[in-house]
């Protein structure tokens, strides 16, 4: 590793893995040399990618063995197709069998529409595999701060993780801004209003309402440090966990359900100057958030 700060947002999937795991510890499974490309993109005269937009393998983080996956947001928007999804499913099933923690670097627009049915089922399979691994005590840590954000079914998968680490760029949402606007009109959501997108779906808002656990700067080393800490947290997932999540999600609706904008919610949290949040540097924001935010307290 060098001392030069590396942007997580700008990095590709392989660079993110290289920044996360210990040097020379990474071994890829079903790598590009296997040429396991999408069997479906050719129908649309679209070029395939040798890894189908996801890198999966094993490595260590500060000496702790982990399984790791990273989506490539530049290829097909990091979307889940048949092969892409199956690689993550296989990794998670191995995690359960081995009792080994998993780190997933999300960067996805959701289901890949050219193979939508295969991608949709893949997401359901992945969520099931995460829950089954977590019930056996496996940690599944999600990292979100890429170009494509974490949308659609990716957002639902993220919601199954034990810990979520986000940067400001890490947007988490089900329906993307463009799709809401297309279906419900610009009055419902103006997707070109980037400030609205960031404060509704971005990492700062998700951190403040408890949708994400750890806020980091757009810095690969910060993601690695936060992942290291997350892997040291207790791995608990049972009926009590979901009862606590039920309670916190009910409380969120009760507290904020009538509010129409993130700044109203931030104000209700006790933040005096919510309009200053979007421009606030990461460390200042993290300090403020620690004081005012709704923490999920591992109830996820």
């Amino acid at each position: 590793m060098s001392n030069i700060r590396q942007s997580w947002y700008e990095a590709g999937a392989r660079e993110r893995i290289a920044a996360l795991v210990d040097p020379r510890s990474f071994a890829e499974f079903v790598g590009p040399e296997c040429r396991e490309t999408s069997p479906h993109l050719g129908i649309f005269n679209l070029p395939a990618q040798f890894d189908d937009g996801i890198v999966v393998g094993s490595g260590s983080i500060n000496g702790t063995p982990v399984l790791v996956a990273a989506q490539e947001g530049r290829f097909m928007g990091g979307a889940f197709g048949e092969v892409h999804g199956a690689k993550l499913t296989g990794l998670l099933r191995a995690a359960k069998a081995l009792g080994r923690d998993v780190v997933i670097a999300f960067d996805t627009g959701g289901v890949r529409l050219q193979e939508a049915n295969a991608g949709e089922i893949a997401i359901a399979e992945i969520m099931r595999a995460i829950v089954e691994a977590r019930l056996d005590g496996v940690r599944v840590v999600g990292l979100i701060g890429g170009r494509a954000g974490c949308y659609g079914g990716g957002g639902l998968i993220a919601g199954c993780c034990s810990t979520l680490i986000v940067s400001e760029q890490g947007r988490i949402s089900v329906t993307g801004p463009e799709v809401i606007e297309t279906n419900k009109g610009v009055e419902e959501f103006d997707s070109r209003d980037r400030a609205l997108v960031w404060r509704t779906m971005g990492g700062k808002h998700r951190t403040l309402i408890g949708g994400a656990d750890v806020f980091v700067d757009d810095d690969a080393a910060a993601f690695r440090a936060a992942a290291t800490a997350a892997l040291a947290r207790p791995a608990k997932f049972d009926a009590a966990t979901l009862a606590a999540e039920q309670a916190r999600l009910e409380r969120r609706i009760a507290r904020f359900g009538d509010m129409s904008d993130a700044t109203d919610i931030w104000h209700a949290l006790g933040i005096n100057d919510p309009k200053a949040i979007p421009d606030m540097p990461a460390d200042a924001f993290a300090t403020l958030a620690a004081q005012y935010r709704e923490s999920a307290d591992d109830a996820r």
Binding site: G12, R14, G31, E33, P47, Q49, F50, R74, F75
Partner: peptide
């Protein structure tokens, strides 16, 4: 044994 550069995106390519 192997090297991979680039990604498949508009105006880009991957080379294995």
């Amino acid at each position: 044994k192997m090297a991979l550069v680039g990604v498949v995106a508009s105006g880009n390519l991957e080379v294995l």
